[in-house]
Design a protein around this nucleic acid. Sequence first.
DNA 1: TGCGGTCTGTAGCGGCCCTTATAAAATGGG
DNA 2: CCCATTTTATAAGGGCCGCTACAGACCGCA
Lengths: 186, 186
Amino acid sequence: MAGRRRRFDREEVLDLITRAFWRAGYDATSVADLTRLTGVNPPSLYAAFGDKKALFAEVVERYLRTYGAFAGLALREEPTARAAVERILREAATAYTDPARPRGCLLLSVPELVAHRRAAIDAVEAKIRADVASGVLPATTEAHGLAVFVGATVRGMSGLARDGATREELGHVARAALTAWPAPVP
Amino acid sequence: MAGRRRRFDREEVLDLITRAFWRAGYDATSVADLTRLTGVNPPSLYAAFGDKKALFAEVVERYLRTYGAFAGLALREEPTARAAVERILREAATAYTDPARPRGCLLLSVPELVAHRRAAIDAVEAKIRADVASGVLPATTEAHGLAVFVGATVRGMSGLARDGATREELGHVARAALTAWPAPVP
DNA sequence: TGCGGTCTGTAGCGGCCCTTATAAAATGGG
DNA sequence: CCCATTTTATAAGGGCCGCTACAGACCGCA
């Protein structure tokens, strides 16, 4: 047996909500804001997504699969850590200043998402260690320190973007950071 | 004519409040939190500092004169931009992980303080331009880009510190960033 | 067409937010 | 000693918060 049909597109609404949290953060985005933005009334919202926390969790999950997927892709697709990091920094410069989206990175803007950030840095570190193991990078490479530096750079870029930095400025940051990359084994 | 004397030390209370805003940010710190923390009741707090916004403004002003003064000092006291930036990054690594204080930088953690951040980057840029003018740095130096890179680095360090990074990790970031500094004119 | 089931809109719950009205307590000058 | 003045404590006002009870609208199936 079926009942009355849902009057809104779940994915579409979830995207609107993603952008709202992305713009203002978790606390600063009220459920009333979301109902106003989406036209979906509170009971329907709660029936479709659960409470605010669960809704935000789904937003984060979705963000990772869409807007924020580029970093994981670069780490998976590029052959070396250097190539992956270069691609991440360059794509971050454009993604974080995309005029069609909120600026910066959602995962880097919400304090509670530490675990995601740690995981990202760990992934970079693993990619660096693989290059050290395969002889692309010298054995003296400080894999962890370098990964943390990349994390700091991306985070700085996201913050600058939120403050209104231009794409060119973020490009400068990316380029400068890459000059700090260790020379490969000849 | 005089009346009843104030029962709390204004500076002491302001420091407690500074640390509260520093820890949790502006919105997440309620006036009730502050009265609980300081033992000062709302009417006394409002009489001494004005409303929450004015109180926060005074906190920022005080922070700039105390905890956050090291960057301006370095820019004023060091002879070259390179020396100033090196000192800023090294002092940031220790200051942002000082166990006796909240982690990271208040000015870099509160979104509304964009103007302060811009001013800081401008100051770094001016210091770089001075070195270019005096021949310490090559005329091809991209002063603005380099200053923005320094801003991104410091901001990244602050964010990492808030996420629990160690002093050593921030030291890595500082060291790596400094290797991106352009070679001086021989 | 009637009926169980799902979604919708309204309206409101208790709780915390920032702020302030009120009145008592403490002070120094005349 | 009393009075003007200042700070204190209690308590509450008005507003927004996340969330939900309720009742009506809509649906597929019998």
